[in-house]
Computed example of a mutant assay.
Amino acid sequence: MANTNNPLRTVNVTRYVTPLREGGSMPAIAEADDGFLYVLKFRGAGQGHKALISEIIGGEIARILGLKVPELVLANLDEAFGRTEPDEEIQDLLKASVGLNLALHYLSGAITYDPTVTKIEQLLASQIVWLDCLLTNMDRTPRNTNMLFWHKELWLIDHGASLYFHHSWQNWEEQAKRPFMLVKDHVLLPQAEFLTEVDESFKTILTPSLIQDVLNIIPDEWLNEDIFKSSQAQREAYALFLNTRIANSAIFVKEAQNAKEAII
């Protein structure tokens, strides 16, 4: 059952500030009625609500594990919001995104993590690699690190490309036990010296109860796959996928260790 007392705050978008065109889904910086700026992720963008689901699951699991993630909020977009937008592409996106969207607190002044400039401490690198193997997050590469330095701390952003199995749900039970082959491209893999130790620690933290708490955050209206009888059935499928993956984490840890050894 979805959590009627959702731990994520809900805000109303009041001002579209500027698009972030480097993202394929064209997120934007927007202001909300609480006076803060957010990076707004639109339900009407290319991957739709599936990317928003991945953002919630990835971001909130990372937070449980003690990693830094900007605050996530649910963001309401009013039907009248985009009527005065002169850019036709943006106007179409706003019209397609009326209703509940997702936003991340905007980290003003943050600097993109550059692996050629800064080396991450080995334990932290191992924690992030483990997380991304769990989530099958393909989008933490040298080309696009999706990490920011803000107030001298490393923050993780953009988990929308995670859990790519849910774009088709084909053989998803089997995929839960597969290694994450794309870990070979992970920007932090060379520094991930403590994967075994992190695995032992993180497996004990991520209990089925905590996974369920994360999944209960997802709004029912985003859980509308035709192959499931209800939003709750889809939520249960996510739970089974994640809990199975955690229980079999030795598989993706071994793949990561092998990929690390293969780095010349």
Rank of each mutant, 00 (worst) to 15 (best):
A2N: 10
Y113F: 15
R235C: 06
L77G: 02
F42M: 08
F180Y: 15
S162N: 05
Y238P: 01
F42V: 00
D220T: 07
W222E: 09
V11P: 01
N101L: 04
A2F: 04
K119L: 09
K229P: 03
T196M: 07
E79R: 15
G82E: 03
F241G: 00
E153M: 10
F194M: 14
G23E: 02
N248E: 11
P19H: 01
I205C: 05
E221D: 14
V69Y: 02
E31W: 03
E60L: 14
V69F: 06
S54T: 12
L123Q: 10
A62M: 10
R143Q: 12
S201F: 14
A125K: 00
G46E: 14
E22T: 09
N12G: 09
I227H: 06
H49I: 15
Q234S: 07
W169D: 06
L93W: 04
A262V: 03
L52S: 11
E261N: 11
I227S: 11
I205F: 07
N248G: 04
I157S: 00
A161D: 13
L123C: 07
L40Q: 08
F42G: 02
I56Y: 02
V187H: 01
H49F: 11
L134Q: 06
P70V: 05
R178C: 09
T136N: 10
H166W: 15
L148D: 03
P179M: 01
T136L: 08
A28N: 07
N3Y: 07
L188H: 06
L107A: 08
K254G: 03
R235Q: 08
A259K: 15
M147S: 01
T14I: 09
L52I: 12
A125V: 00
D220M: 11
T4W: 13
K50Q: 13
H186A: 02
I120L: 09
A62V: 03
N258S: 12
S249Q: 07
T10M: 10
N146Q: 11
T118D: 13
F81N: 02
I211W: 00
I251E: 08
L93G: 05
G59L: 05
T84W: 10
A110Q: 05
A45H: 05
S231A: 15
G44V: 03
Q212R: 12
E121S: 08
A103H: 10
W130N: 07
L93S: 06
L240G: 02
G48L: 10
P27H: 04
L65P: 02
L65F: 04
I53F: 05
V117A: 13
A110H: 06
M147N: 00
G23A: 14
S230E: 04
I57A: 04
I111N: 08
K152N: 15
N6V: 08
I264K: 12
D226T: 11
N137M: 09
L40C: 09
D220G: 11
T4Q: 14
D185L: 11
R15T: 12
D87T: 08
T207P: 01
E88L: 10
L215K: 04
Q91I: 06
L77N: 01
M26Y: 08
I264C: 11
V39Y: 05
G58F: 13
K184D: 12
K203G: 02
